[in-house]
């Protein structure tokens, strides 16, 4: 930065000469490019040395990991005396770590199972559940598609390949093109369990082999936008305005509900789930402050930014 300023000063000093200017400009650009390539400038390491730095260990669900990282970043920017280490690995991994006492907060996209509770208590750990946000999955189609709503049964038949034409669910005579996220995505598993398998434990249904697996949300929205045959699903926050969101009914005869913050919160939209954090006992000190901040307006604003459903 200093160098640039000096250069500018020098340029100001010299009498106007186009050649000189262009040489100086080239130099400046070179320096700017050099700066841009260099690793980001000095990190804001200005932590005031007031007492020991406290570290919160936070681990678990991959669905939540980006949200947890964003929270940790925003919170530690405000509280430099706190360090938050966030890792993924899955809900089960996080809960196991809480039971073993190696983390302070476990992230989970499902509630803890009774047997996990038992194991925790046997280990002297008393898990306390905190609902921190909600996750809803929207079913999307091309805006020109006349179909407005589908039941879970119809969605299951569509995604297992039993229904292959929009005509069979009240649409135009068009083949159905199935779009899904890649199988490593948490959304894939959740949609499979709740929609394709209709939430039935013994149901072994799978996505049709004709399902297109898109490597990104952008891949899904791009195909939905231009293909009137397509149907796909994604986290509510990833759905853009140029896609049509379908209303979903639990079964025929029941009301069709569109996913919104309100319908997710009152539980009427069927493809939604709460997201959890678990602590050992009622949180105290820094951990309590962090969880309170997460549930504050500021923390919940980040929830909306990352495409999840905030609690308020």
């Amino acid at each position: 930065m200093y160098l640039e300023d000096k250069l500018k000063m020098r340029i100001r000093g010299v009498p106007s000469s186009p050649l000189l200017y262009s040489v100086a400009l080239a130099l400046l650009l070179g320096i700017l490019a050099g700066n841009a390539c260099a690793p980001a400038g000095p990190a804001p390491e200005a932590a005031p040395e007031t007492g020991a730095v406290q570290t919160i260990q936070n681990k678990g669900s991959d669905t939540i990991v980006n949200l947890a990282l964003a929270w940790a970043e925003a919170y530690t920017a405000r509280h430099p005396e706190v360090r938050i280490a966030v890792t993924g690995g899955g809900s089960g991994t996080g809960i196991a770590a809480l039971i073993n006492g190696t983390v302070d907060i476990a992230n989970a996209s499902r509630a803890m199972k009774p047997e996990e509770m038992e194991r925790a208590r046997a280990n002297g750990v008393e898990p306390v559940e905190h609902v921190i946000a909600a996750d809803a999955i929207a079913v999307v189609v091309h805006p020109s598609n006349p179909v407005d709503g589908l039941t879970i049964d119809q969605l299951s038949d569509i995604f297992t390949g039993k229904i292959t034409n929009w005509r069979e669910v009240g649409g135009e005579d068009r083949p159905i093109v199935l779009l899904s996220r890649e199988s490593n995505s948490g959304t894939y598993i959740y949609f499979l369990e709740v929609v394709v398998r209709k939430g039935e434990k013994e149901n072994q249904a799978l996505f049709s082999p004709d399902t297109l697996l898109m490597p990104s949300s952008e891949g899904i929205s791009n195909e939905i936008r231009q293909n009137p045959n397509a149907i796909g699903y994604d986290g509510l926050g990833y759905v853009t305005d140029d896609q049509k969101t379908l209303a979903v009914a639990v079964r025929a005869g029941e009301p069709y509900v569109l996913p919104t913050v309100a319908t997710v919160k009152d539980g009427s939209y069927p493809i939604a789930r709460p997201l959890y954090m678990y602590t050992n006992g009622q949180p105290t000190g820094v951990i309590k402050d962090y969880l309170d901040w997460i549930l504050s307006d500021e923390g919940q604003a980040i929830v909306r930014e990352l495409g999840f459903v905030p609690l308020r």
Partner: peptide, 17 residues
């Protein structure tokens, strides 16, 4: 993805491009 796939779908009459 943006240019060729829509053409394939439209002019070859396939369900997806």
């Amino acid at each position: 993805m943006i240019a060729v796939a829509p053409l394939v779908r439209r002019y070859l009459g396939m369900p997806t491009g």
